[in-house]
């Protein structure tokens, strides 16, 4: 995990080349951060097609904004900021849209094969139990506010430290910890009926 304050940006060279018009250097940055950003957006939206479209928008925005990137933060922090902002804006719009209900999202999440952990595929009973639990977890995740879902996704799923999350969200570490605490309480209460 890059730390902006202590180390030079490991992507400095790729960023410089991409800024001078080297599309292969930008491709390398997409391949380096694409999977992580996919995980972030997918866990925030719970929708594959939306994730794909948002990821295209995120990298397009980064590509066009690259000349304005001053290197005050690492490229990693910067592109995460773009991803979080674009995804949160999208979620606000989606909330306002009448056509997309939470129930529709729930069903698409439940049927999504990406949500089944492949390490448990060999044991059908265990896998079925886990699948049920993950289904409930996804439902509980979707019932979180966007701000809470964002910190849970970054901290619990992606393993990003509090300080880095605070930098990405441009907020204090205390706020990040507080959001996490309330989000965990919410998830605990949502999952208590299914926990043995």
């Amino acid at each position: 995990m890059p730390d902006d304050s202590l180390q030079p940006d490991p992507d400095e060279d790729l960023v410089a080349r991409a800024r001078s018009g080297d599309t292969r250097a930008f491709d390398a940055l997409i391949l380096k951060y694409g999977e992580k950003l996919y995980g972030l957006v997918y866990n925030m939206t719970s929708h594959k097609e939306d994730t794909h479209d948002l990821l295209q928008d995120i990298f397009a925005k980064a590509y066009h904004s690259l000349p304005r990137f001053r290197g005050q933060s690492s490229f990693y922090t910067w592109i995460y900021q773009i991803a979080v902002n674009i995804t949160l804006n999208f979620l606000k719009k989606r909330k306002r849209r009448s056509g997309m209900s939470l129930n529709e999202l729930d069903s698409s999440v439940q049927q999504d094969p990406a949500l089944i952990d492949s390490s448990h595929m060999a044991n059908p009973e265990k896998q079925s139990k886990l699948h049920e639990l993950q289904k409930r977890l996804n439902e509980a995740m979707l019932s979180l506010s966007e701000a809470h879902r964002t910190v849970v996704t970054m901290f619990d799923i992606q393993g990003i430290p509090h300080a880095e999350i605070a930098r990405i969200l441009n907020t204090s570490e205390g706020t990040v910890r507080s959001r996490l605490h309330y989000a965990h309480l919410h998830l605990q209460s949502k999952l208590q009926d299914y926990w043995e």
Binding site: Y38, L130, L133, Q134, I157, Q158
Partner: peptide, 10 residues
């Protein structure tokens, strides 16, 4: 439980 979702990949 949430950490299991790290394995989700395109």
């Amino acid at each position: 439980l949430l950490a299991l979702k790290r394995h989700e990949r395109p």
